[in-house]
């Protein structure tokens, strides 16, 4: 028996929004989210009973993001604007080089800034695998390329994130990464 669609929004709404934010940046994420869930609502009755709903939603979100990117006829942009209430220090543009700690490292949205700075392939691989829960095989299908390449892009992305995203003032212990984070 298929659960009411409302339940899908309750269970996966936040995760899909995080994927959209990572893929398109915060300003454009809302539209992609809306289009994703509206389209999913329409197709929901045809979704097989045993389908992985989150993976299905993330795949739709990926297509909507491509549509949006095409419509704007430019590449997805990194996160430049944070919602006003979350931006406290205005220093979010620092730290790209990986050496400097963020002044706003306790900011819950600092992660989105850091994700936005990743090269596109790494950013998408991280978004779909870690935020969207897609297996690497499906990430590879969305991005094109091999499963191994998807896996590599994703772990390179995570490594880069560990360098630039420094919540609290926890110091890493890895020798190559003096300011890496361990959460």
């Amino acid at each position: 028996m298929k659960p009411p669609f409302e339940k899908m929004v309750a269970e996966h709404g936040a995760a899909v929004l995080r994927v959209c934010r990572a893929v398109l940046g915060i300003p454009d994420a809302d539209d992609a989210w809306s289009e994703t869930f509206l389209s999913a609502l329409g197709a929901y009755p045809e979704l097989p009973q045993d389908a992985n709903v989150e993976a299905w939603l993330v795949t739709i979100a990926h297509r909507k993001a491509i549509d949006q990117t095409r419509m704007r006829s430019r590449q997805p942009i990194p996160v430049e604007e944070l919602p006003e209430r979350a931006s406290r220090t205005g220093s979010a543009k620092e730290g790209a080089a990986g050496g400097e700690a963020h002044d706003d490292s306790s900011d819950s949205l600092a992660l989105w800034h850091s994700v936005g700075l990743l090269p596109e392939k790494q950013r998408l691989a991280v978004a779909y695998h870690y935020l969207g829960g897609l297996p690497f095989a499906e990430v590879a299908e969305l991005l094109g390329g091999s499963v191994e390449a998807a896996r590599r892009a994703s772990s390179d992305g995570v490594r880069a994130l560990r360098l630039v995203y420094l919540p609290e003032s926890v110091s890493g212990t890895a020798t190559h990464e003096p300011k890496g984070i361990l959460r």
Partner: peptide
Amino acid sequence: DSTNAAERFDFTPLAEESIELD
């Protein structure tokens, strides 16, 4: 190494992000 790195990065939203997401 990369697998370890991935495992050590926690993408779970922090409390403040959870509130904003909700």
